[in-house]
Design a binder for these strands. Sequence first.
DNA 1: TTGCTCCTCACGTCACGTGAGGTGGC
DNA 2: TTGCTCCTCACGTCACGTGAGGTGGC
Lengths: 141, 141
Amino acid sequence: MRIGELARRTEVPARLLRYYEDRGLISPERGPSGYRDYPESAINRVNQIRGLLESGLPAEIIRDVLPCLESPCTLQLRDAPPDLAARLEVHRDRIDRRIACLSRNRDAIAAYLASLRAGDPGTAAASAAAGMVDVQSAAAG
Amino acid sequence: MRIGELARRTEVPARLLRYYEDRGLISPERGPSGYRDYPESAINRVNQIRGLLESGLPAEIIRDVLPCLESPCTLQLRDAPPDLAARLEVHRDRIDRRIACLSRNRDAIAAYLASLRAGDPGTAAASAAAGMVDVQSAAAG
DNA sequence: TTGCTCCTCACGTCACGTGAGGTGGC
DNA sequence: TTGCTCCTCACGTCACGTGAGGTGGC
């Protein structure tokens, strides 16, 4: 399929699909007209890329991880850099801290909104100030 | 205190503190030498900023939210733009989806690492591919 | 020809990082 | 004077967004 269809089916702008290609994350064929030609499997691939980018993994690491996710799930792990596991562990821990921080902020914003709707600005500011902070205790280290 | 001390106590690089000032999020006094002079309360303020930025709130909205978090928690809500609540609601929902997405990716990376350590690349790739995706089902809309 | 999609520059943005080169205070 | 901190440009980066200007296929 061409880039427009892939963009529609993945809900990822065509511009981003070109950007991912530029970063070495997807490598579509080219038709005779120069148009990009993606296989059906690109949909899954793009969703994988989105998920990993959303979780904060830099493109360079994603490039190392993706070959290990290819179907059929064979032994490409040989090709993976030896420190991939270590880097993934670091990233997993970062995600943990990020989730904790986001949860706190979500709760604080929710409390803030609730007080706002209750027409109690004092309480709103107080509850929000109490919860919305603490990157340190939640995510430091 | 000066920028160096604030940087040490908040663990936020001085460069970022200047950047936040540039974005209008902090406005320290200036000493006779031109050095920035922060009050003790700046520590809390910086932590609030960090928390909100980490949760994905753009600086512009943070600028609107911060006055409402000031102590003493008075009625500055008058000064808040009327659509602040709506924007915060949108953001709260985004955080929800982000947490869901991050949790999935965290679990997938953990499973991937577990299989890696068990020396079972097939399972690793399979479990990771199964879980590490799905931005769509987790965060679409 | 019209309309749609695609292409490649190329510049802007946001939240940063990283120097260069110079000044102030103990 | 030495060493530390601070200052202001100013350019780089990463994951994007947004045109400009041109081409290909029905």
